[in-house]
């Protein structure tokens, strides 16, 4: 079992420069996450929740405050922090096992150990038999599972999930939430999930961090003291969900709008 890290965020602020003007994105965010904890972050679009993840993963820098992983200030990206993006971001020219193996490119392991790790993690996300498939042959849910395997294959100390199921249909999403919970319980690593789906946040998180926009800051942190596996129909579950939702009553929630699929030339060609 990998080592799970403590993540300490202290007084974190971040601004973007837009046409010479300073636009605050995050304002004095402080959050302490215990090893092996599952923290959900919910908020409307523009509340800086994705920026927060991008800062923790190291894709963005130039911030004020501290981001400490096990007491050490994070610098750039590192194999000890993994991320799953909203889009699967698999490399279309690589097969499933090559995509997962890519995560180990710079890992300090022998070839045989790498092969084993890839096989184990493909099994972990339940994709045995698809090792040699290309991304174009996979469904959205399967692709996202490959992305999870790729992010976990390095055994990171903390896994960040940036709306990983946002683009999936409701049934697949519910199924993958269960899967993610199983993986989290099995691997015992620290996970931070950013989402705008309150039910997802409550279903998965030990705590739900509610953020509010302009500038992005923490409004409230809600504990979810429910045993797992959780029942979405349960009264206590519904009560916590209502509680979190009430924080959004004066901010209409931005619904996810599915982008229209790209049309193929064939679709508009006449058959005669």
């Amino acid at each position: 079992m990998p080592h799970a890290a403590t993540l300490e965020i202290r007084g974190l602020s971040k601004q973007y420069q837009v046409k010479g003007e300073t636009l605050p994105v995050l304002d004095n965010v402080s959050l302490s996450i215990k090893p092996g904890e599952f923290v959900s972050i919910v908020g409307a679009s523009g509340c800086g929740k994705s920026t927060l993840l991008r800062l923790v993963i190291g894709l963005e820098d130039d911030y004020q405050g501290d981001i400490l992983l096990d007491g050490h200030r994070i610098v750039g990206t590192s194999l000890e922090r993994g991320i799953v993006f909203q889009e699967h971001r698999l490399f279309p020219w690589l097969t499933v096992e090559q995509n997962v193996g890519l995560g180990l490119l710079n890992a300090d392991l022998g070839e045989a150990r790498k092969r084993d790790a890839v096989r184990e993690h493909i099994a972990l996300v339940g994709l045995e038999g698809f090792e040699r498939a290309y991304p174009y042959q996979l469904s959205g849910g399967m692709s996202q599972r490959v992305a999870i395997a790729r992010a976990l294959v390095n055994r990171p100390e903390v896994l960040l999930l940036d709306e990983p199921f946002g683009a999936l249909d409701a049934l697949t999403r519910a199924y993958l939430q269960q899967e993610l919970q199983r993986i989290w319980a099995q691997e015992g690593i620290t996970m931070i999930l950013v989402t705008h789906d309150v039910e997802e946040a409550v279903y998965l998180g030990d705590r739900v961090v509610v953020m509010q926009p302009r500038p992005g800051r923490i409004k409230r942190i809600v504990d979810v003291p429910l045993p797992r596996p959780r029942d979405r129909g349960d009264y206590a579950f519904a009560a916590i969900k209502e509680d979190v939702l009430s924080e959004f009553s004066d901010h209409p929630r931005d619904e996810l709008i599915a982008e229209p699929r790209e049309r193929n030339a064939v679709e508009w060609q006449f058959s005669w």
């Binding site: 993963i57 190291g58 894709l59 750039g76 990206t77 590192s78 194999l79 922090r81 993994g82 991320i83 993006f85 889009e87 971001r89 490399f91 890519l102 995560g103 490119l105 710079n106 390095n154």
Partner: peptide, 21 residues
């Protein structure tokens, strides 16, 4: 850009970025 970010997350060196992405 999305692919280049994946390369950064996995700490690719410049040659790996060129050859692999």
């Amino acid at each position: 850009r999305a692919h280049l970010e994946v390369a950064r997350v996995f700490a690719f060196n410049p040659w790996q970025v060129f050859a692999r992405v």
